[in-house]
Design a protein around this nucleic acid. Sequence first.
DNA 1: GCTTGACCTCAAGCTGACTTGAATTCGTAC
DNA 2: GTACGAATTCAAGTCAGCTTGAGGTCAAGC
Lengths: 150, 150
Amino acid sequence: MRVLDIGEVASRSGAAPSTLRYYEEIGLIASLGRHGLRRQFDADVLLKLSLIAMGKAAGFSLDEIAGMFGRDGRPDIPRGQLRLRADELQRQMVELRTLRDVLRHVADCPAPSHLECPTFRKLMQAASHRKLAYRPTNGPRSGRKVASKP
Amino acid sequence: MRVLDIGEVASRSGAAPSTLRYYEEIGLIASLGRHGLRRQFDADVLLKLSLIAMGKAAGFSLDEIAGMFGRDGRPDIPRGQLRLRADELQRQMVELRTLRDVLRHVADCPAPSHLECPTFRKLMQAASHRKLAYRPTNGPRSGRKVASKP
DNA sequence: GCTTGACCTCAAGCTGACTTGAATTCGTAC
DNA sequence: GTACGAATTCAAGTCAGCTTGAGGTCAAGC
């Protein structure tokens, strides 16, 4: 079992030490113990950090990501829920693709002003059916708090 | 020229009145004036709010969005920036797809623990080349401040 | 044995995008 | 003319996800 100290985890994962400390504080990752003052981590933490990075990239909050790990720190989500999440990601992807296409169109459209471009106006029409809603910071949903393990 | 008061703009756009006031405060939208205390808006503001919504969905900050309107209040979006953003959306999509695949795999994988499943590990390997980096709140970049018009 | 440099803790600060609350002011309907 | 409801202002609060800074501690290398 390889043991890494925080500095190494930091440089390998790209996360700042302060971030790792923060993650530990909120119970998202766990350290094995200390060497003097220095936190020591199992090398597995790198894998977990990758998962966390992916989750963040996908728009999940840290709370939600934390909910995806079981008591033993292993990923452990009811399979049905996983499939639901996957489907939601699928939908999100479709939205992103649409948006990407809009942006590309607008970037390449030769009309002097976008308001004069019929394609743009049409896209705007389509978009304006969507309602604005406030979502504090990022992430599709905020729910349970990250629990610090007792 | 249709004139709407703030309540109507709010209900049509889905943005809360407080949000509209906030947008006006930072110079993102402008009101025509008042009827008594009530702000009055040109109906055009709805289009602008749609644009703002799209911009937000695309990951632009309000600052950036504000920068996309010319002096006359018409959208005037730098094409290069749009392409960059589209490319970033592309990358985000790829991440989402990977995560979706991970989730789907995990949902269907019969291995007792995912960490022991070679497929899982391989997917994670692929993902782990990505570095984590802190981006304060949302949006890939924060830049100029929204200027209130003099 | 001393220095060095990376780590530690703890509280506080920051960013963006709003919301909330208290106290107030209107226009309109009765 | 008075009550009502919706809007107003302003300062302060909120949220996530960290970073920063001051002051302290430790293990390893010389």
